[in-house]
């Protein structure tokens, strides 16, 4: 009885010391996963996720306080990549992803105030003062920063229309 208690206590103490040493000498400063996930994020720091920038969102995802699906501009593709990297099971079908969205300017409403172009994280809005602005489709991440600022509600997020070369065969039903 006493031998058993003693041996277990000893074993516990020994392993405790080993763990303590490991914590002291093998400590990793910062989580490399955060950087890795951060590299996957859009990097536009748009703030739609509610975290301070993409690095903040990456840290929150790694910490588990945010879902891999929290990034709207990244959409399904990003969620799948992040979940794959973290080994998480994510229900992608639950993600409200109507395909990627981009901003569009209603030309009859735009007054050329330049407010939107100042906040665009990727400089996707072009246009000088008093000129009608336009959105570069290739550069817009659909972060919606500009939408709220527009005084005439000329900016709206629109789904990217499906095109022939980019069309994807739907997954079979009833599967």
């Amino acid at each position: 009885m006493i031998a058993a208690v003693l041996s277990l206590t000893l074993l516990g103490a020994l392993l405790g010391v080993v763990l303590g040493c490991a914590d002291r000498f093998l400590r990793v400063e910062g989580n490399p996963l955060v950087d890795e996930i951060g590299a996957l994020m859009p990097g536009s720091n748009c703030g739609q996720c509610g975290f301070p920038g993409c690095a903040g969102a990456a840290a929150a995802i790694v910490a588990g306080s945010a879902a891999p699906t929290c990034c709207p501009p990244g959409g399904k593709a990003l969620a799948a990549a992040v979940a794959g990297r973290l080994g998480l099971a994510v229900d992608l079908s639950a993600l409200a992803d109507d395909g990627p969205q981009i901003a569009g300017v209603a030309e009859e409403l735009c007054i050329g105030c330049c407010r939107c172009s100042k906040v665009c994280p990727t400089d996707a809005i072009v246009g000088a003062a008093k000129q009608i602005h336009n959105v570069l489709r290739e550069a817009c991440t659909g972060c919606a920063n500009c939408v709220d600022l527009c005084p005439t509600e000329a900016l709206l997020l629109q789904p990217v229309p499906p095109t022939l070369p980019h069309w994807v065969m739907p997954k079979p039903l009833g599967a």
């Binding site: 593709a77 994280p121 991440t141």
Partner: peptide, 21 residues
């Protein structure tokens, strides 16, 4: 898979734009 690859390329491009900005 092709759509994901396109999204990845696009993300790379927009990240570059954001960094440039």
């Amino acid at each position: 898979l092709a759509a994901r690859e396109r999204a990845r390329l696009r993300t790379d491009a927009t990240r570059k734009l954001a960094a440039q900005r």
